[in-house]
């Protein structure tokens, strides 16, 4: 059974139909790429799935449960986590705090354990700190650990955002343009990490414009146009498809 099942998703903004009866399914363990020209509805698709906007019609099923219209925090707790196209950092917090924040189910996030400073809560925070520092080191940000994330460069922000979502250990990770504005070396680096995560069993969906990286990386490509599914299938076949070439290059 598929992990994520999107059925007949429709969303309009005023007179603009951003998503038009879109149906896509993602199987557990898959690595799927989503592409399409500007305004094809890729980000709206992510926004509807991750609960940032509520779709007008259609159903989103995650892990066998209907999650249509569930708020982002509920989805994140149940294992569906996303990143943002414009990287959003908590700029007034340090790199460490950015990553630590994402740790799920912390006792110290409730009033009483925080006030009483229980030893259980302190042990938990110790474990969270270790895990966060490991992730920060894995993304080679350790020299910036105590830096405020507002001071980070564009590429470093992409890495930090990845580290932060990985703290949640998601079942399904939605990455919105993880390579945008990132130099080629770092692009390959991020791609390798995504591949590694997928090899370890994480299901990943990536929106990306960078065609070459994407076709090399993913198992399956989904092409959107004007809010609907244009073509889907094996990356090599999809990029040769005349409809896709037409959508991207014009007639």
């Amino acid at each position: 059974m598929s992990l994520l099942d999107v059925d007949g998703l429709t969303k309009t903004f005023g007179g603009l139909r951003a998503l038009d009866d879109l149906s896509v399914a993602v199987d557990r363990g898959e690595l799927v790429g989503v592409m399409g020209p500007n305004g094809a509805g890729k980000s709206t698709f992510f926004n509807c799935v991750s609960g940032v906007v509520t779709p007008d019609a259609g159903r989103v099923t995650f892990d066998g449960r209907d999650v249509t219209g569930d708020p982002p925090e509920t989805l994140a707790k149940s294992g569906l986590v996303r990143t943002f196209q414009q990287t959003r950092e908590l700029e007034t917090m340090t790199v460490r705090d950015n990553v630590r924040l994402a740790a799920p189910d912390q006792r110290g996030e409730r009033t009483l354990p925080a006030l009483l400073r229980t030893s259980g809560m302190q042990d938990e925070e110790r474990a969270v700190r270790e895990r966060a520092d490991d992730l920060i080191a894995a993304f080679e940000l350790d020299h910036l650990r105590d830096e405020y994330s507002g001071a980070l460069s564009g590429g470093q922000r992409k890495l930090l955002e990845l580290a932060r979502v990985l703290m949640l250990d998601p079942d399904l990770l939605l990455l919105d343009e993880p390579f945008a504005g990132v130099n080629p070396t770092l692009t390959n680096d991020i791609a390798d990490r995504v591949r590694g995560l997928n090899d370890d069993g994480m299901t990943v969906v990536i929106i990306e414009h960078e065609l070459e990286t994407l076709t090399d990386l993913v198992d399956r490509l989904v092409v959107l146009q004007q809010g609907s599914l244009l073509v889907e299938g094996d990356p090599a076949t999809v990029v040769e498809d005349p409809r896709v070439i037409e959508a991207y290059l014009g007639e």
């Binding site: 708020p71 700029e91 924040l101």
Partner: peptide
Amino acid sequence: ADELVTRSVG
């Protein structure tokens, strides 16, 4: 800092 980010990490 950013409520939406905070929500999307659960």
